[in-house]
Design a protein around this nucleic acid. Structure first.
Length: 450
DNA sequence: CTAGGGTTAG
């Protein structure tokens, strides 16, 4: 608790706002109330500090908009920048561009060197190639382009929009490149699957850090070169670069791909012995934990996967999905269903289509026909999840249904068959199962629905 | 207040 033993002056409130009390919360609402009570509600310095605190939380608290509107003159660039950044981070990049950045330009508010990187990042989040290019041009015209940070952000923007050639061009023309510039292009090449060029560039880098190494490790792991991923990891250790959570995820994907329990255990052991910069062991990280579950399941040790799952302090939807999938693929449908029920009960995450696919497939592999159907019903009625071709296909196998009409009859009987688009789903099922003849028959019979 | 790597879907 913050103790107000005396009336705070303007200066002491300001100091309080900019002091970290160690909880990360800094009792912002109490301080805000105090600011208003003492009549400092329009003080620009205090408003800016308040805004900085509010905008560092996600999702963005409504109070931030209220504070932003309290400036008696137009807010300074700093405040606009915070709002652009916060909206992008809170899943509202459209508002960041349309409401904040555009208005800032229209109102003629002088931007600073932070504004354009934030605006470009918002464009990247909505893949708005046109607007991003416009800002690129705007930067050149206004003289803000001469900045490595901005150039790196723009390079990453082109990468997000799938335009690796522009990234390459931009990179070649950069007068000053740093390790981030190099890594951006490396990861751009990696994500086309162009590992040869990526590696060539990686080897040519004047300076490499853990991020650059991880980009290569992850690329090899995901593009069918798990041996190279492991090799890269070992080389990285020899060059005295410390791995982090991101690196372990890449390494574990490679271990899963290689199907080696021994190698997987080695990676896990390594992660358990090395704390990260905040003193936590790597295997407590939610991404590393999920990757471990997946890895152990893939190399055939369900027991180890369960051990990791049970030890995890925090679990995401992906964590639950990964564990339920593991039970399913190991033929333990009963355990998959039980874990699903536990997931519902703990209530921190909401099941999605992947969850149901995992449970229903688990039921299929364990011969739990009634349970599987119940789950299918659950998915539609309780969670309003539209079944995909995978779900229909799973259901068809569960019910041992061969004929398209039987699936339809079943679905109608259960009132799942409400809209025309279900026909399209069914067709997808038949495509997935490569039942070409049945598909042709279905199309001939139901041309009305197309 | 600015830039680059991450998990689940037989």
């Amino acid at each position: 608790m913050v103790c107000y033993s005396h009336q705070h002056s303007h200066r002491s409130l300001f100091r309080l706002l900019n002091t970290d009390d160690g909880t990360g919360q800094s009792h912002i609402r109490e301080i805000h109330a105090q600011v208003l009570r003492l009549g400092h509600g329009r003080d620009p310095a205090l408003l800016t500090s308040l805004l900085r605190h509010y905008t560092s939380h996600t999702p963005l608290p409504p109070a931030s908009t209220a504070v932003f509107s309290q400036f008696s003159t137009t807010p300074p660039a700093f405040a606009w920048n915070l709002m652009i950044r916060a909206h992008t981070n809170s899943g509202d990049p459209f508002v960041a561009v349309q409401i904040y950045f555009n208005r800032m330009v229209v109102l003629g508010i002088p931007i600073d060197k932070f504004t354009l990187p934030f605006a470009v990042k918002a464009c990247a989040a909505i893949f708005n190639l046109g607007k991003g290019k416009e800002i690129h041009g705007f930067a050149i015209k206004t003289g803000f382009y001469d900045d490595v940070f901005l150039q790196n952000t723009i390079a990453h923007f082109y990468l997000e929009c799938g335009d690796v050639e522009s990234v390459r061009l931009l990179f070649d023309r950069m007068p000053i490149k740093n390790v981030v510039s190099w890594t951006t292009l490396v990861s751009g090449l990696v994500s086309l699957g162009n590992l040869e060029d990526a590696r060539e560039l990686f080897d040519a880098m004047p300076v490499r850090n853990v991020v650059s190494w991880t980009a290569m490790i992850d690329g090899y792991a995901k593009h069918g070169k798990p041996e190279d991923a492991v090799e890269m990891f070992r080389t990285m250790l020899m060059e005295d670069v410390k791995p982090n959570e991101f690196t372990f995820v890449g390494l574990l994907i490679a271990c899963a791909e290689l199907g080696s329990l021994e190698l997987g255990r080695w990676a896990h052991n390594f992660a358990q012995k090395h704390p990260n910069s905040r003193g936590y062991m790597f295997d407590t990280d939610i991404f590393v934990g999920t990757a471990l579950i997946d890895m152990y399941s893939n190399v055939g040790s369900l027991a180890d996967a369960v051990k990791v799952f049970d030890k995890m302090p925090v679990r995401s939807l992906a964590t639950w999905n990964s564990m339920i999938t593991s039970f399913g693929v190991h033929g333990q449908g009963r355990e998959a269903v039980d874990l699903f029920l536990k997931m519902e009960k703990e209530g921190n995450v909401t099941p999605d289509g992947i969850t149901f696919k995992a449970v229903i497939c688990g039921c299929l592999r364990d011969g739990l026909v009634d349970e599987g159907c119940k789950m299918f019903e659950n998915m539609i009625e309780k969670y309003s999840i539209e079944p995909t071709a995978d779900h229909w296909s799973c259901l068809a196998q569960l019910l041992d249904i061969e004929d398209a009409n039987q699936i339809r009859l079943f679905a109608e009987d259960r009132r799942f068959w409400k809209e025309d688009k279900k026909w399209k789903k069914l067709m997808e099922v038949l495509v997935v199962d490569r039942r070409g003849d049945e598909l042709k028959k279905l199309v001939a019979k139901n041309t009305f629905y197309l």
